[in-house]
């Protein structure tokens, strides 16, 4: 990742705005959502053979987006603030890192009495109402109209908030890159957060994400979300399987279909930092959405209370004025 100047920061912001506006036009009919415009992907776990072609393709296609940190890192205060450095461990492929936006998780489960190892591509779920984008204080993480949740590396300060609020703890931090270096590197920020952007720049050109294009087993399918949900349930019905992502965190644009329940998968996979779970997830933003409705009623309620409180006084004042005249 290159160091940015104020000019390039502004240029990038404007370009990003333009790109999003144009993104709906560039997509071919095969991947362009009719209405709604959100595109989703379906990952059919049965088909994955764990060859890691998707992982390699992701790393190759997105190499120019990966961080190139400046070292030594600026000393950060207070001392509890730790640098996160993956630049010497770029080859790590068994978990998510700033250089590995997609990895293969494995689970040994029993299917029809036979023990099998399933391999599962894991990356950002691209939530329909992503808390990382909703709660980002700078607008660095944002949801695009085509359903992609993207972190703009030129704006992100690396505060890690997106990871804290993400139900799957997907974004990963790299210190020594990004805007914070030009502001107060010792006192605020700590790098940039990185995660899958579902190849937004390829989608803009009408090309599928690299992981989908390079998969020899056609594990993934991309298309309008409603069609993808239908397809997920059709496959699930056919194999007596299960769907993940339709309602998780209010709905995600990455759906999985599995021959075993996701509770079983969740127990069987290795979980921890950089290794997301398969638990059921409630809608993180549901409470906030409900409170938003109350905001419409609040000023009306205040106004009604004032009328109740002051109506008599207002009437007596106008009567007094009337008599005075």
């Amino acid at each position: 990742m290159k160091k940015i100047s104020r000019r390039s920061f502004l240029k990038t912001t404007l370009a990003a705005a333009g790109a999003v506006g144009a993104s709906g036009l560039a997509l071919p009919a095969s991947v362009q959502g009719a209405d709604p415009k959100e595109l989703a992907t379906l990952i059919d776990i049965r088909k994955c053979v764990g060859c890691e072609a998707c992982v390699d393709a992701c790393k190759e296609v997105n190499a120019s987006k990966f961080p190139e940190p400046e070292k030594p890192f600026p000393k950060m205060y207070p001392s509890r603030v730790r640098a996160a450095d993956w630049s010497e461990k770029r080859d790590v492929q068994d978990r998510l890192t700033p250089y590995t936006w997609l990895f293969i998780q494995s689970a040994t489960v029993t299917i029809n009495g036979e023990e099998q190892t399933l391999t599962i591509p894991r990356r950002c779920m691209h939530c329909q109402n992503p808390p990382c984008a909703d709660l980002c204080p700078w607008g660095a993480a944002r949801k695009l109209e085509n359903g992609i949740t993207r972190i703009d590396a030129d704006i992100c300060m690396g505060g890690n908030k997106c990871k804290v609020v993400c139900p799957w703890k997907i974004p990963e931090r790299q210190t020594g890159v990004g805007l914070y270096l030009d502001l107060l590197p010792s006192l605020a920020g700590n790098g940039v957060m990185f995660k899958c952007d579902r190849c937004y720049n390829r989608i803009e050109k009408g090309e599928p994400p690299a992981c989908i294009e390079e998969c020899p087993e056609d594990v993934q399918t991309i298309g309008p979300r409603d069609e993808i949900v239908k397809r997920a349930y059709a496959v699930a019905k056919e194999i007596g399987g299960y769907v993940y992502g339709e309602t998780e965190n209010g709905g995600t644009n990455t759906l999985y279909v599995s021959p075993v329940p996701f509770e079983t998968l969740n127990k069987a996979i290795e979980k921890g930092p950089g290794r997301p779970h398969f638990k059921a997830v409630e809608d993180s933003m549901a409470h906030a959405d409900n409170l938003a409705k109350a905001m419409i009623i609040a000023p009306v309620a205040g106004a009604v209370a004032a009328v109740g409180r002051f109506y008599k006084a207002a009437k007596s004042v106008s009567e007094t004025d009337g008599k005075g005249e």
Binding site: L291, M295, V307, R309, A313
Partner: peptide, 29 residues
């Protein structure tokens, strides 16, 4: 972050109610 976000929303609701109350109260009396 979630808790402070909810409190911020609740604060906004109360603040909007106060705005409504004060604007109408001022206009009336």
């Amino acid at each position: 972050f979630y808790f402070t976000h909810y409190v911020h929303y609740i604060g906004a609701i109360l603040l909007f109610a106060i705005f409504g109350y004060c604007i109408v109260g001022y206009l009336l009396v």
